[in-house]
């Protein structure tokens, strides 16, 4: 059976999603999309300049990509909902990443407001992908609220600290019947591969690619890592053992 990632009724060709907020130029975005193979590209509405051809980031995203506007800057559910509706009305489609931050020190998402916004937007026909702090109970509520996927952070945005929330994400992967997409904090392709080996459906990467000395190269590296991790997951990576396994088992005396 083919391994497909389907979100919001769309079959995705890539399990790497990329962000666009930190690049040195909008012109590099299509090159990174190409090198990484990414199909879902997220853009903050706050950055989209509909009045300028050159500065409008959306104009630099290849047409066959799925544009996922994010609600960066929203401080509560109401603001996130307004941003989503503005984006849709402006022709940005109905995929929305809910990003509600009530903490500017660490940029940690507000799970409670995110659940509220998910419920409202899902009812209005949006394909909602909420960015959240890994919490199984919040993830269940997001699923009940109509989320199309759940996007727990690996580490706080911009920190490149990797899968610091690994155990909580693993639990979510095991328990929540929705794509779990690790978003934020992944600093290296090996960390993206690790997330995929664990069973994540996809990963979203922004800082590590955009701020690299060679974003196109780094995009390619992440693309390959995500593929490698997914293949390893499907092939069934061997169990990690706590202790070495003796070649002479202890219960051998019992016979076969």
């Amino acid at each position: 059976m083919a391994d497909k990632l389907v979100i919001g009724g769309k079959e995705l060709r890539s399990r790497l999603f990329i962000g666009t907020g930190k690049f040195s130029s909008n012109k590099i975005i299509p090159e990174v999309v190409k090198s990484s193979g990414a199909q879902v590209v997220t853009v903050a509405l706050r950055r989209i300049d509909f009045d300028s051809n050159e500065e409008n980031m959306v104009n630099h995203i290849p047409e066959d990509c799925i544009l996922m506007t994010n609600t960066s800057g929203a401080r509560n559910a109401e603001e996130a909902v307004r941003i989503a509706k503005i984006a849709r009305a402006a022709g940005c489609g109905n995929w929305i990443k809910i990003e509600i931050v009530t903490d500017n020190k660490y940029l940690l998402p507000d799970n409670y407001e995110t659940i509220r916004a998910t419920e409202i937007l899902a009812k209005e026909g949006f394909v909602v992908l909420p960015y959240m702090s890994p919490d199984l109970i919040a993830a269940r509520r997001l699923k009940d609220a109509g989320a199309a996927a759940v996007m727990p952070l690996g580490a706080p945005i911009g920190t490149n600290k990797g899968l610091r929330t690994k155990e909580l994400i693993k639990i979510m992967i095991d328990e929540i019947d929705l794509p779990i997409i690790v978003d934020a904090g992944l600093g290296r392709p090996s960390e993206a591969a690790e997330a995929m080996e664990m069973g994540a459906a996809a990963v979203l990467v922004n800082t590590a690619i955009a701020t690299s000395d060679d974003p196109v190269g780094m995009g390619e590296a992440f693309g390959l890592a995500v593929q490698a991790g997914r293949k390893a997951f499907l092939a069934g990576a061997p169990a990690i053992k706590e202790y070495a396994e003796a070649s002479s088992p202890l219960t051998g005396f019992l016979g076969a």
Partner: peptide, 16 residues
């Protein structure tokens, strides 16, 4: 700013 390898951003918010 472009010559320094950076991007000038003109818009980082809008009324919602």
């Amino acid at each position: 700013i472009y010559s320094k390898g950076y991007q000038p951003v003109f818009k980082d918010w809008q009324a919602i």
